[in-house]
Amino acid sequence: MVDKVIIADKLTKRFGDFTAVDGISFDVSQGEIFGFLGANGAGKTTAMRMLSGLSMPTSGKAMVAGYDVYKENEKIKRNIGYMSQKFSLYEDLTVRENIRFYAGIYGKSNAFIKEKTELVLKQLHLTSEADKLVKSLPLGWKQKLAFSVAIFHEPKLVFLDEPTGGVDPVTRREFWNLIYEAAAEGITVFVTTHYMDEAEYCNRVSIMVDGRIDALDTPAQLKKTFAAQSMDEVFLKLARKAVRGE
């Protein structure tokens, strides 16, 4: 049996009268790349915030990395990484200082940090830029660095909230190579995106409409079910039903 890293069961979040996330149920296996799609306002970010311990669910159950989101969110936090749609490194710190700082938050030992920093720098071809301020790097490199920082502490699961916004196609491709490498090491990747070509790279994809998950399958199966040529078509067919506006 494969380890389930996320198990969500009728997970719901209400803000007053508004049901942002409406009883979603799904599970994600270890090492899987799970695409979490939906139009703006469909409830993706809220769902992700619940799973990452930033926000308390209104009802339903969820286990993340084997821990209960209600009671054990401190343990969850130790086992996940997070990269937000906003670029989240410190521009006025150097590459090395950023890595050090984030690794320090997770309480990693100096020896671990030192060794792994060199490894990451090499992997990103940033060794010669290590002591430059992050603000001098091009956006694509920053984003790749942000991803490496998010998984630096070797979490079981990493949440990526629209990680490739505003990046050119070549860099996006490189970014996805990093995601594959991470998945191959056993890190589960939970990713939201607006780019449908990226949805094709995922092992499985869920599509949220108005707070519910309306479809969940492999990209190939989804295309078959919806008789579509591409994920783009699948998405449009589903998103058209949405009642909520932008």
């Binding site: 990452s52 906003k86 984030y102 938050i105 997770y106």
Partner: peptide, 13 residues
């Protein structure tokens, strides 16, 4: 504003 606070809140800090 820059979003770094969010990252810290997701961390065990």
């Amino acid at each position: 504003e820059t979003g770094t606070m969010e990252i810290m809140l997701v961390s065990p800090a």
